[in-house]
Design a protein around this nucleic acid. Structure first.
Length: 928
RNA sequence: GCGAGCUUGGCGGAAUGGUAGACGCAGGAGACUUAAAAUCUCCAGCCUGUAUGGGCGUGUGGGUUCAAGUCCCGCAGUUCGCACCA
């Protein structure tokens, strides 16, 4: 990437204030015009690639601070990797379909498209103002046919690959949003967006068969070694593999009227070893047999209806007692000559297992509660080891607590004496042999229902024909575009109400037919956008060489809130795209980083209304309203949210402080994976530092000009040698003609220590960036800046004799190297100011974004003196200064001789000495 | 209930098992200034002492180790996730 630009003309007076209003847009324009950030669809084979991606935003209106943190973090990685020589893909797009657009349409009469694009424009402007190193030429907007048309293509291929099903099923119906929700979108029985109580409804829905990949998705987690542990655990539990047994219980005297398929009940259990402890069989209220029983008996019907009314809301779950009703039916036990009653119980869930279980009250707390409620027998079958040891087994019985642990089997016929583990095996063998059951793996994960009765989403490319059924739209008719002339007057789906959009002809028989009016769940849109970014404008969903070269995403960054839904869907989608030949990997995100939230204090006025931070003035005792002076209550520090009004708008912050200061602050205080508190004091503190850094580096630039103006020829060698980075002894002698060795020596010590500090900082910042501890990188840059400032006086105070000129040059060199290094080190976090300082400091070198990441030179990393801690019995008693290669015996002797140490050693005998070279000497002593 | 994470000064936090509190914020003192702001310098875990010093300190109780914020086992608090999961 070659580029030219004109550096700051030397005639312009050096301004000592970082004027971001002018400087930041200037460099943004330079970057844009030089195209430094764009990368080819197919990167050159000899250059290593790096794909860094932040979760793309939903265009809700305004960028918020969470976005700023997310994208600043991603940009640090992108710029750092670029400096390290990687070809960096760092794209941005918009997750642009979704319900809020439709709500805006209903509430304010704006068309969803108009609303969405206006928001995108606003947010894009703020993003650009942040100076992120993004590939804007790869921008994706999911609500544009260029994107969603390809998604429809993928869907048709998934159908052919057997990954799609249309099923009549009970769905979660959100009565407020008037749409179906996936299980994942129902939180505590309420819609994740509307908060409305979810109803059960039976509808024909499209499903993606994610369960087919359940095992694979589970196994794949093991390979994700750069994912946070807790995200992996959450996914594991969500997939929820459990190994158990399906056991068939035939009804002992089935009524004649009962249909044959209802004449046995299948239960799922993970504890077949407790089979002999059975005292009842319980089925869910919406189990087919329960429904049949309800038809026979009004009392049962009433109970079933009551269970359905209570639903699954959290209140009903926690407060409802274990309740049930006896159906009067009985089932035979596989191994016992008795039969057991079939109850309908409110704690049995139809959508887990088979919707039926056998109750063993002794070994399950719920079963026990139920048994106590209805006076059902409780037979202990597992003897706890401690009871066994105590020898009290004859009197062992279950009281209020079920025993759920392991032990030895009792009261269990052929299982008696076996351990729970053995019993499980034996019972399964027996059941399988007798054809009464088989081991099965049960998954918590359900297939992914993707139909939404919504307008603002990707149309499902299907045509319903009375004779041919559901027919995929032929590829040459894609994309199926959304009509724009829709009305939001009526509730429900506007596509349904559109006068003619849904009317078409069947692609097979050409008879009049109806388009599918449901649209895709928007999680579909975000399940493959990262693949699309590799060739965003292709006429196929992906281009094989591009995805092959770019995927997987090396570093994905986003909020923990997507730990399950989005990440699981994306992992599944990638597998589905692999099967259909669109990508050649299974795991889309090699590295995942989940950043913490941005929090802020919240404020309430006397009437209990939330007050925005910009209207608040902090006083020594509390807070008052900036305008009215009314005292305010300072509330908790919590996640920024519109409802609490504890938000600060990024656009306003950038206007006041500039992008770099905002970025610097958001990166500086807290480790990126923890929550950070946004404070006014914090951001202005960041501002002070930035100005300090700027003044200081500009000062070095001025010194350099002053010093080199007399000896022009020096400039080239100075700069050249610094760029080459390994600053050698011979290079130094270019600057020091050793006229007066002694006085030079003194100055040299200061200069040398600055140079050592500079190189140490390179190592520390590099390490910190590798470890994602950006806050530590920031701290190290602070330190180096302070070190640079500390040498200012050293430089100025020396008189200008010829002798001191050499010292000054030594110092100037150290300061120049330090300042140049600072520019490079802070560039990932504060790219604008880095460019500005760099252009003043070394205008001949071009852009910072094109500079290689600084390399620490070993010469300056070796230390000449180290402080060694001296301990007695592990307690610090003193420190000594040694040279790194000092002999161990000498170090120990000196440690012993330290006055403070010596005092503690008095009257003691050293029994052992631990010496960790250049770190510590520890004397193990005892009294004489 | 199950699972995961977290717990270090007034606050955010730093610390390959090796000098706890780097760096920053807030605070204090001083310099510069007519003054303020800005800037610069210094101080700052707690207790004790005039001081050199001494004692105690990383939620809590144990353990391992010459040495523990760090490793192991318990407990508490807290945050998040899942949950009548058979």
């Amino acid at each position: 990437m070659s580029h030219t630009f004109s550096s700051t003309p030397s005639s312009v007076a050096v301004s000592l204030v970082y004027d971001f209003h002018n400087i930041e847009p200037k460099w943004q324009a330079v970057w844009e015009n030089s195209g430094v950030f764009s990368v080819p669809d197919i990167p050159l084979p000899e250059q290593p690639k790096y794909y860094v991606l932040e979760m793309f935003p939903y265009p809700s209106g305004q960028l918020h601070m969470g976005h700023v943190r997310n994208y600043a973090l991603g940009d640090v990685i992108a710029r750092y990797k670029r400096a390290q020589g990687f070809c960096v893909l760092h794209p941005m797009g918009w997750d642009a379909f979704g319900l809020p657009a439709e709500n805006a349409a209903r509430e304010r009469g704006i068309h969803p498209k108009e609303w969405t694009f206006a928001n995108i424009d606003t947010m894009r402007l703020t993003l650009k103002r942040l100076g992120l190193s993004l590939n804007w030429d790869r921008e994706i907007t999911t609500c544009m046919p260029e994107y969603y048309g390809q998604q429809q293509r993928l869907f048709l291929e998934f159908i052919r690959a057997g990954l799609v099903e249309r099923r009549e099923s009970w769905v979660n119906w959100d009565p407020v949003d008037q749409t179906v929700l996936a299980n994942e979108q129902v939180i505590e029985g309420r819609g994740w967006r509307s908060g409305a109580l979810i109803e059960k409804k039976k509808l024909s829905q499209w499903f993606l068969r994610i369960t087919e990949y359940a095992q694979d998705l589970l196994d794949g987690i093991k390979s994700l070694d750069r994912w946070p542990e807790r995200v992996k655990t959450m996914q594991e539990r969500w997939i929820g593999r459990s190994e158990g047994v399906k056991i068939r219980f035939p009804l002992s005297c089935p009524p004649d009227a009962l249909e044959p398929h209802l004449r046995e009940v299948t239960v799922f259990t993970t504890r077949p070893d407790t089979l002999f402890g059975m005292s009842f069989l319980a089925i869910a209220a919406d189990h087919p047999l329960a429904l049949w029983a309800a038809e026979q008996n009004p009392q049962v019907a009433e109970f079933v209806a009551e269970c359905q009314r209570l639903g699954t809301s959290i209140e009903s779950v926690e407060t409802a007692p274990k309740r049930g009703i006896d159906t009067g039916l009985r089932v035979s036990h596989p191994f016992l000559n008795t039969d057991f009653p079939v109850w309908i119980a409110n704690f049995v869930l139809m959508d887990y297992g088979t919707g039926a279980l056998f109750g063993c009250p002794a070994s399950d707390q719920r079963d026990l509660d139920f048994a106590r409620e209805y006076n059902l027998p409780v037979t202990p079958v597992i003897l706890p080891p401690e009871i066994e040891k105590s020898g009290n087994q004859d009197h062992y019985c279950i009281e209020a607590q079920a025993y759920t642990g392991n032990g030895r089997l009792i009261n269990s016929d052929f299982l008696n004496g076996l351990t729970t583990h053995e019993a499980r095996r034996v019972v399964i063998e027996r059941l399988e042999k007798q054809g009464l059951g088989e081991s099965v793996v049960h998954w918590r994960l359900r297939d992914w229902g993707i139909s939404r009765q919504r307008y603002w989403g990707c149309p499902i490319p299907i045509i319903h024909c009375a004779t041919c059924g559901a027919v995929p739209v032929p590829e040459d008719q894609l994309p199926v575009t959304l009509p724009e002339d829709v009305s939001f007057e009526k509730p429900g789906n506007p596509l349904e109400h559109h006068p003619h959009w849904k009317h078409t002809n069947c692609p097979v028989c050409n008879q009049p037919a109806i388009r599918e009016t449901d649209t895709f769940d928007t999680f579909v849109d975000s399940s493959w956008y990262f693949s699309r970014f590799t060739a965003p404008h292709a006429l196929t969903p992906t281009v094989s060489e591009a995805v092959h070269r770019w995927l997987a995403v090396d570093q994905y960054i986003g909020g923990i809130e997507h730990a399950i839904l989005h990440l699981l869907y994306a992992r599944f989608f990638t597998r589905a795209m692999h099967r259909t030949g669109h990508v050649d990997i299974d795991e889309p995100f090699a590295g995942l980083f989940t950043q913490g939230m941005v929090t802020h204090e919240s404020y309430k006025d006397q009437d209990g209304h939330w007050v925005y931070p910009e209207d608040v003035e902090r006083t020594s005792t509390g807070a008052v309203h900036r305008i009215t002076g009314e005292p305010l209550t300072v509330g908790r520090v919590e996640k920024m949210s519109k409802s609490k009004r504890n938000t600060v708008a990024p656009a306003a912050i950038i206007e006041r402080f500039g992008a770099d200061i905002a970025r610097w602050f958001v990166l500086s205080d807290s480790p990126p994976d923890r929550d950070m508190e946004w404070t006014e004091a914090g951001v202005s503190g960041a501002g002070r530092f930035v100005q300090r850094l700027f003044r200081s580096v500009c000062g070095v630039a001025a010194e350099k000009t002053a010093l080199l103006s007399c000896k022009k020829d020096l400039e080239n060698s100075l700069v050249k040698k610094t760029i080459e980075s390994s600053v050698t002894e011979s290079c130094k002698t270019d600057f020091i003609q050793k006229t007066d060795k002694k006085s030079v020596q003194e100055q040299k010590t200061v200069a040398d220590s600055l140079r050592r500090m500079t190189h140490r900082t390179i190592v520390a910042v590099t390490e910190a960036l590798e470890h994602f501890t950006i806050n530590v990188a920031v701290a190290r840059i602070h330190e180096l800046t302070s070190a640079l400032i500390a040498t200012e006086d050293h430089f100025k105070n020396k008189t200008k004799t010829s002798q001191h000129e050499e010292q000054q040059r030594e110092m100037a060199f150290a300061r120049f190297e330090c300042a140049r290094t600072l520019c490079l080190l802070c560039a990932p976090m504060m790219p604008h100011i880095a460019e500005e300082m760099f252009s003043r400091l070394c205008p001949e070198e071009g852009l910072v974004v094109c500079q290689a990441w600084p390399q620490a030179s070993q010469e300056w990393l070796t230390v000449t003196r180290v402080t060694v801690a001296v301990q007695i019995l592990g307690k610090l008693r003193g420190t000594i200064e040694v040279s790194p290669d000092e002999e161990a015996t000498r170090v120990i002797a000196r440690a012993q001789a330290d006055p403070r140490v010596a005092r503690f050693l008095q009257g003691k005998k050293i029994v052992k000495t631990i010496h960790v070279p250049n770190r510590i000497v520890n004397f193990v002593v005892k009294d004489v």
